[in-house]
Amino acid sequence: MASGNILEVENLRVDIPVASGMLHPVRGIDFSVSRGETLCIVGESGCGKSLTSLAVMGLLPKTARRTAARMDFLGHDIRTLREREMARLRGGSISMIFQEPMTSLNPSYTIGNQLAEVYLRHVEQSRAAARDRAVFLLEKVGISSAGSRLGQYPHQLSGGQRQRVMIAMALMCGPELIIADEPTTALDVTIQAQILHVLADLQHEFEMGMILITHDLGIVARVADKVQVMYAGKTVEEGPCEAVFDAPMHPYTQGLLRCIPIPGKTQRGERLGSVPGIVPNLVGELSGCMFRNRCEYASEACAEMRDEPTRMGDGHAYTCLRAPEEIAGERQGAGGTL
């Protein structure tokens, strides 16, 4: 692993006891983020991507159990930190932006209060400095007349404005790492693009590492340095953004990419693809490739396969029994649309 990494996670697992047994929503995933780098974690609902981010933050539900071979953040071993020490990192060096801007701000306090609060907790006890920082960041995230906004309550702001406030809040203490869990999913399409630009610009400006969790491949293509595709709690494919988009190896990644129109490639009137079937139940003992019941290439061997990724160099890797040559040959045959 590169030495510039600010976060390194190996073999992260999350287990949640449920009525029917043990649920395994995250089943051993590795990832790392370096300063200024954007890692996109992609996958459909229920693949464990949100729980992965909550596991890093130490914000999993009480009943969930987290295990990992390694979870290092800036020299801290997150696995062994006490809650009190973890709380010092949260909001200070690691910030999180959530999916639901409409409900993520406390309705009873002004946004100025909520912005200042995190600064006063982690940086310094100076209301004036906290206020200045809040105004500076509100302007940065594109909120007009920022000074007078401080006295407003969340219900006086639109969804897009609230998400801008959430971004500003996440940046209050100058974090090293920012985790954004589907930050634009709940917003209008036009607002989505703006919010994403704000986020990407500020990430570059402040040289933060960012983990962006999304199911929107259009977003990934625009901002990601690295992509990690999750399916049923595991990484099925990972690599540099261009490599994964240009030459997707795993059938699931290929399926996802067929679902979105690509300007210049998708013909008018051409049907977009879909990935048929549903995510399998992740309760109890699980073995083999979990995608096999939805995969057009599935064979009996898939039920037995172990998670040994096929590495292609430059960090691109995928977990599938099909050989790189086979997939590449097929891509040639299909005329290179994928």
Binding site: A87, E117, M169
Partner: peptide, 15 residues
């Protein structure tokens, strides 16, 4: 959600 936000901000349990 806003309690999750408050915890994500690293506020003290009392706060």
């Amino acid at each position: 959600d806003y309690i999750r936000t408050a915890r994500a901000k690293g506020l003290s349990p009392g706060s």
